[in-house]
Nucleic acid binder design. Sequence first.
DNA 1: GATGAATGAGTCTTCATTCAT
DNA 2: TATGAATGAAGACTCATTCAT
Lengths: 186, 186, 186, 186
Amino acid sequence: MGKREDITDATLDLIDELGLQSVTIAQILKKAKVGSGTLFNYFRTKDELVHEVYRLARNKMGYSLLEGYDSTASLYERFTSLHRNRIRFGMKYRKEFLFSDSYSFSPYIPPELRNMDESGEIQEIMSVLSEGQKQGLIRDMDAKLCHQITYGIVASVLKGYYIQKYELDEKREKETLEACWKAIKL
Amino acid sequence: MGKREDITDATLDLIDELGLQSVTIAQILKKAKVGSGTLFNYFRTKDELVHEVYRLARNKMGYSLLEGYDSTASLYERFTSLHRNRIRFGMKYRKEFLFSDSYSFSPYIPPELRNMDESGEIQEIMSVLSEGQKQGLIRDMDAKLCHQITYGIVASVLKGYYIQKYELDEKREKETLEACWKAIKL
Amino acid sequence: MGKREDITDATLDLIDELGLQSVTIAQILKKAKVGSGTLFNYFRTKDELVHEVYRLARNKMGYSLLEGYDSTASLYERFTSLHRNRIRFGMKYRKEFLFSDSYSFSPYIPPELRNMDESGEIQEIMSVLSEGQKQGLIRDMDAKLCHQITYGIVASVLKGYYIQKYELDEKREKETLEACWKAIKL
Amino acid sequence: MGKREDITDATLDLIDELGLQSVTIAQILKKAKVGSGTLFNYFRTKDELVHEVYRLARNKMGYSLLEGYDSTASLYERFTSLHRNRIRFGMKYRKEFLFSDSYSFSPYIPPELRNMDESGEIQEIMSVLSEGQKQGLIRDMDAKLCHQITYGIVASVLKGYYIQKYELDEKREKETLEACWKAIKL
DNA sequence: GATGAATGAGTCTTCATTCAT
DNA sequence: TATGAATGAAGACTCATTCAT
């Protein structure tokens, strides 16, 4: 098994357990069962390692969002598919979702990472929104505001789930998706 | 002016500028123009200081939410008043809002702080929601889910504003408040 | 006694024992009986500490060179006085002389340090040389070359003494001083 | 071309550029285009490599000193030939000269290396000096002191040249050689 | 109450060296 | 013989905290 992957895995685990800024190299080394020299062979600095972990998480999420995506389906179905995928991704990959969400607002993150869209999922979301507005289905407001609203719902609902405010069963998933749609529809 | 306040003010400023974990005691001392002995007279540890800063920010937000609150107004008006107050608080007190939002999800925070409700604003929000459900205005779902949805919208819209995705003018404020309502209404 | 002085003293001792580049902070801390925090309160980096040690050594030597200097004496006497002082300084303060000599040729040294002349001793030497040339006592060659020649003799003789090639008694001191003069006189 | 030579060449280059203690094995490997395993096949430790580089430099200088040496020439000519060769060697092979000069005073160097005289050049110099004293040409002082004086002049003049205090043209070379002779002659 | 010099455990990072291929 | 991934001891430096004044 690759040492490189051992390292990024251990790092994400620890970020999840302790919070990004509390994670020390020493902890990573212990968890990944790797010498410090090894780590710094793969990543020049701690920052570079963190950025890579972020990239991996964001990529994983990006591809998940587009899973089973049918670009010929109705607009509502495309909208819901994207958001359902995000919820399910968040439920399955808590660590990736939480780190991605929190780090993208941290002051450290380099701009090119913050706006990364390697799998094109953001573009897809934005084009669904603007197409929906053209079709008169979605309220005619700043597309970025739209996105921020629906993303905010999903992220917040997931966070409530993470701190065990409730179960996120099929019923609540459905309610959340409908809230997303209703929040911005005309 | 009180040294104690100098210290908490300086701390919040620095958290906003640099991110919680980057702030050092030395920086706080310099900004607050206080000796280290003084700081540790008021706060036994750095954690205790951070918790106090959190408490102050949460309290400030709590009282703001209830500003001009008319408990005899219509349910929709009460709902909107609370959420409008949160948006405006967030616009005016970015540092307090952001720190409060991010810290309440951090792994460090002691449970009793996470759920603090000194001014009773959370209770008020929850009772508006459940009353709305009784009146058949709000969809009959887990009240905590409801709260998570509307809080998520406001927080996310504010974060988009903070990173200057858009201006948060009256129009967008109105759109956001309507999104909050529509997301959960029957 | 001042911690600051404890630190610079320990540093110079260790440089003498081990060579500049082998000296570690840990060794200095141990010898100076000081915590690492203390050291870095006084000197921001190891380099800054080394530069200060160099400055102190150079200054000490500079003032020693001018000890008992009579600017009204004959040119030969002034010349010899300066060089005798350097030899005696080197014998008494081996550590200072050796470090000063070797560090001034190191690639690390910042230019303003290399050419430092706080006590004006270099200026005095150079003016003795050029005056001697005007008086027809000293061979008419590049003054810097002159200085390099006489300095080279003194430094090299001292180094031979340090590695115990010979005793540096009065006779040899006299021979060395005469060599300095004869090497450049007309 | 031999790997072994690639390694020692790269090492000397780097010592000259960066100073002995700053040179890392990694830099040597890169410059010599060699794997670390290879280097440690040829040299058991870094020290062993450095010592070998020193030996090579000293040897090169030793043979150069004796180039064109005519043991039947007059004493003054033999003396001047040896010193002229050293100056010219220093001008042509700065890296070798500087490393040889500085390393021979470093605390690291093993005694047997410091006094090495593989090509017999030191013996030759010393015998010129003592013969000169017997002939009444050179002042009757400790032969080691004599050597130290003339070596000191050459080394110091070269160092001034290296840090570009002056050009070392024929005139200055001649002046330097004469200074060497005058410094010790009767 | 207010101060800041002193502390040392802990941080990230480097680098000579090994060893399986 | 040649390689380079892996190692971990050791390096410079940081920072929350203490305590004598």
